[in-house]
Amino acid sequence: MTPLQIIFLLVAAISLGGAVMVVTRQNLVHAALWLILVLFGVAVTFVLLNAGFLAMAQVVIYIGAIAILMIFTIMLTRKVAKDTDEQLNSNWWGAGIISLLLFGGVILMLFQWQNFQFNLPNLNPSVDPLLQLGEGLVSPNAFLLPFEIASVLLVAALIGAIMVARERK
């Protein structure tokens, strides 16, 4: 066990524990705070994978914006989201079985795959992924189209959300 492995296991355990809390907590604000812990754990995982930019984007976008938006919504719809109500529906055991089956199936499939125990290739130190990313996002023979379409998608989401959430005067 290298220190890196220990760090990974720690982060993974905390994240998974947090994820279980997210789906079981009765109090929704608590669930949202646990969700933030999970998102942070995923950001640390990105750092371990040498994707520093994605880790920062994860914190800025998910924790700084999406989680805050969720907490705001929870507080706006507070009247029905009481902490005392049962938060799981009557078929929760069925959901549990499906999830467990899915997990087992995925693990089984992964173990069939020979690249499963793949070890880490070295990064080429002369190539900066961040530079590559910046170049790739706006060059026509790489990812220009997805990049622009993502922008259009976000603006469409903005327009749609404003239309839906606005109070009719």
Binding site: I36, M56, A57, V59, I63, I68, I71, L130
Partner: peptide, 25 residues
């Protein structure tokens, strides 16, 4: 000297607003 330091500065701000909303709630 991480290569995403400027974004890191923005990311830390996210935690500050989180603390405020936690305190208020």
């Amino acid at each position: 000297d991480i290569n995403v330091a400027v974004l890191y500065l923005v990311a830390c701000g996210a935690f500050i607003s989180l603390g405020i909303i936690m305190a208020g709630w």
